[in-house]
Every structure is written in C-alpha cells, then in structure tokens.
Amino acid sequence: MALPPPALTLTGLTKRFGSKTAVDDISLDIRDGEFFTIVGPSGSGKSSLVRLLAGLDTPTTGRLHLRGTDITEVPANRRPTAMVFQSLALFDHRSVGQNIEFAMKMKGVPQAERRARALDLLRLVRLPEDYYPRPVTQCSGGERQRVALARALGSDPEILFFDEPLSAIDYRLRKTLEVELKELHQRTGKTFIYITHSLEEAMVMSDRIAIMRTGRFEQIGTPDEIYRRPNSRFVASFMGEVNILEISRTKGTPHFADLDLPAPQAPGAFAVLRPEALSPGAGEGPSFDALVTQKLMLGSRTQFHLRAGNTALIAEVAAGPRSALEVGQTARFGFDPADIAWVDS
C-alpha cells in the first residue's frame, strides 16, 4: 500500500537577495501532522525560509509541493495555510470575535456559522466565550497570543506556520504557552511548522528539529537525537552548554588532549560531553581532578564550573549530597564513555 504524500515537500529550495544567499538548496519532506521546528541564530535564513513555505515570497530556484501538488507560484491567500506572526498582527480596532472571524468572513462564511466557529475556537485556545465581544486591546499578552492562534485556525488550514510568536513575552507565560501549543497541536492533528531561536521552545514542543546555519540545515532529528548526538561542534554548542574535548593521537593511541587521559574508542576528532554527564566521583570511566571555580544553584540542579589544568569545564548534578562541593575545592570528576557524542568538525 502506497504511503500518503508528505504534508510539504521542499526540493532544491533557494532564495537569493542580490549576491546574498539566504536559503541555500534545501530539500526536505515535512510529515503530515508533524510539529516541525526550525532553529537557528539570527541571520541563519530561518525567517526567509518560512516566508517561502508560507507563500509570502517566491524562491529563486526550487519547488514546493503541498501533498504532491506544486504550489511554488501560488500566493499565500490561495493556499490552505495560515501563519501566526511574531507581532501577532491583530486588528486592534476590532473585537476578539471579529479578529477570529476575519478569514471566514473573507471566504463568505455566513455570520451565524462564523460566530459558532469562533466560539468553538475560543474554547479550543482556552478563552471564555464572553471574550467574543471584548475589544482585543483589552486583552493581556497571553490572551492576545490565544486570539492570534484562534484567528489562524479559523480558516481551517492544513498547515499552520509560526514565526517566533513567543519571543516578546515573559518567561513564565512563555513556558505556559509552550505546553498549550503542544497540546493544541495534539488536539487538532494539524501540521505545525515553527520558527524560533530558542532551544527551550524547540525541545519542549517539537517532533523534529532542524538546526539552520548560513541558509542550510546543519542537522535534522528528534529533540533527543539533536541534543545527545549532534553531528558537529556548531550543533553541539547551539543546543545548550557543552564540554568539547579535543582528541589527540600524538602519543600513538587516542587520548583527551585537554585532560591528558586515554580516550577509549575515539571515532572522532572531538568528544562532546553534556554537563549532566560529568559528575563528582571516579567511576569505571575516565576521571580527573578539577578545581571548582564557580557554583551556581539552578533549582533542582547545581552547576559547577571547573578547571582541570588549562581546561574549563561545566558539570551539573542533582541537588543533594553530590552537590556539596564548594568553590576552591579540588575534587575528582568522571564520566561514562557511552555519554560521549563524537564529531569531526
């Protein structure tokens, strides 16, 4: 039995602005019903890419297919897609209900049907029905986010795009909305394509993550794959704090040059070790003495900044007896070789 086509297929997608290449020959299948997040630093090309995917811009070369149909030249208002912008772009002179109903009204949906659908969407995004007549200017930041979501869903899109919609709100509300967005994705079953520079947002919400760098995808995988098995130093460093140890073979056998320790089974030029994989005590794996230079309390975890010779390292341990070390102490730290990710560049 043939599998259904992907929700969206990118083939050689490229966008140039004069001599600058913002999106560089990207090919990819985005699965139906997937929460797919594109992460990258400023200037990596992620916003240019989402504009191509949403029909707000046309590629220089390459094609874009929606469930097997070529939509490369189809403008945004004729695609079965919707977008939630960073600015939200709500109509401040209209009520909550009028904002939600806007796309439906443009399609000629009767008023009674629009209202019923808008009330359903208010419940879906966890706003009371009595918000329907409220001026959108009287809504809080989090409420405006929900109204923008409801408005985007009003046209019943097959794909919903998000261009950093949570970047301008405070941390506590952002964490709440991350969970709600993930739950909304699960309830609607729609394909979500999300753009962000935030590692935390990507890790919490995504089925797959693409790390973008200079117009290309550096790595694509599940949050766990990207975090635990990065394929380059760039991805490892971008996905949070990390220890990167160079491997030397000048002594005939591989060893950690920074720590002057043997490196068992070293298939790469660099060993990537997350802070939580480095812990006090000498186990069966490699271990070394290190001076504690800083101690940071992170709630349920404690972070130690270490110095072993000329090498700076970071370790994180759960709060408890193992976190009793203090600044100025020297202690043994060790790690399990199984926790190492190997990269060559």
Rank of each mutant, 00 (worst) to 15 (best):
T214P: 00
R213G: 00
A236P: 12
T302Y: 02
V292T: 06
Q303H: 04
R51Q: 15
S155V: 12
M106P: 02
G108E: 11
K107N: 15
F238E: 02
S27A: 06
I38E: 01
Q98F: 01
L259W: 09
R51L: 07
T176S: 13
T191C: 06
E316W: 00
S237D: 15
E316K: 14
Q329L: 03
E129R: 08
K15D: 06
H185S: 10
D224F: 13
R79P: 12
L325F: 13
M1L: 12
V235K: 02
F238L: 11
R78W: 05
S206V: 06
A277F: 11
A54C: 08
E143H: 04
R126E: 12
I314S: 13
R67S: 12
T188S: 09
A308F: 07
F85A: 06
T37Y: 04
A308P: 05
V242S: 08
P80Y: 11
A271C: 08
S140Y: 10
L160T: 10
R228V: 02
F238S: 02
G18H: 09
G221R: 10
F17D: 02
R213W: 01
G43Q: 06
D156I: 10
D170N: 14
Q219S: 10
L173H: 12
T137A: 14
R94L: 15
G33E: 06
D32V: 03
L259Q: 12
E218P: 05
E246I: 13
G283P: 01
L306T: 10
P337R: 09
Q265C: 04
E164C: 12
P254G: 07
E73C: 08
H65L: 15
F102T: 14
P286G: 08
V317P: 11
I30V: 15
A148I: 04
A315V: 13
L3M: 12
A89I: 03
E218Y: 04
A290C: 05
P337V: 06
P128V: 09
P286Q: 08
Q265P: 01
R322N: 03
L13A: 02
R123S: 14
R51A: 11
T11V: 13
A282W: 00
Y171W: 02
M1Q: 11
L149K: 00
F333L: 10
S300H: 12
F162M: 11
Y132Q: 02
C139Q: 10
L8A: 12
R332I: 04
I169H: 08
L166H: 03
R172E: 13
E34Q: 10
V96H: 06
K175Q: 15
L181C: 03
L177G: 01
I193L: 00
R114Q: 14
R187E: 12
I195P: 07
T214E: 14
H65T: 11
L53H: 06
P133T: 05
A338C: 05
L166K: 08
P337F: 08
L56K: 09
V147K: 10
Q265H: 14
T81K: 07
P80A: 11
I220M: 04
R117I: 00
Q145N: 09
I314M: 12
A257E: 15
D130E: 14
